[in-house]
Amino acid sequence: MTGAPVTAPASSGTTAAGPATRGAGSRRLYGARNYLALIPFHVYVGLFLILPTLIVAIGAFTTAQGGVTLDNITRMFTDEVFVSAFTKSIQLAVATAIAGAIFGALLAWAVVRGDPNGQLRQIVIAASGVLAQFGGVMLAFAFLATFGFNGLVTIFFKSYLKVDILTDASWLYGLTGLAVVYTYFQIPLMLIVFLPSLDGLRQEWYDASASLGGGGWAFWRHVGGPILAPSFLGALLLLFTNAFSAYATAAALVSQGSPIITLQIASQFQSEVVLGQENVGKALALGMIVIVSIVMAVYALIQRRASRWVR
């Protein structure tokens, strides 16, 4: 069909997508045909995203035999282990989101002050992309090489400073270690998300503030702060979901038990579990979807507000 219509105008009447068929009568049919082209995309997303989600959602409410039950959901709310895993995941995500957002925003500010097309900025952005989205297992290893039993810092403290700080590396393999490593990849993510908003702060706004007698503090208090607040909040929520959903780092680092929810789901998934609990993992997964969806919905609302100023 490539290139045919030009030499044979008559044939263009038969190809449905051709402009010649755009008669008033066939408009509705024509419109419907347009939607057909989107079918492959929808089928694909349906098969590999929507269907798995449905399997999780339906599985959460069924027994292994296929009967309807609320037991899985009830167990999620009553079983000490699951409640604690959700609580710890949320605490971890909140703490590292706040720490990551503050340090990331400061770093973004320090970077944006420089030359906008300079080397520093481009290197920082590329490095942030790697550390924020590539890491997982490898970042866990990086921290083992730093603070682990044979790590650089551990050995340094032990042999050179002769002080007893950080010499016992066991903190790294628990929740504290997770918090430290998570913060490590939250900072660059914050930088990537927040940098465009900082770029949107215009010189004229600063000049206007200055010409009215405002100093640096007055600018941030009355102009910069309020404009950036929605972007900052939105980024905070994004960081929360990022830490809340993270699995690889925890899998590589945590040595005992499954203290957080992603590890808990994985252990439910891997071990053929107790009779009657086959679908508890799906209930936990559904619980994660609900929490992340709520956060992302709030994020979308805030984002709409933020985009008013930052274009």
Partner: peptide, 13 residues
């Protein structure tokens, strides 16, 4: 996919 963690996709897929 931003709202559906990878670990959840594994369970469903």
């Amino acid at each position: 996919p931003l709202a559906i963690p990878a670990i959840v996709i594994v369970v469903g897929i």
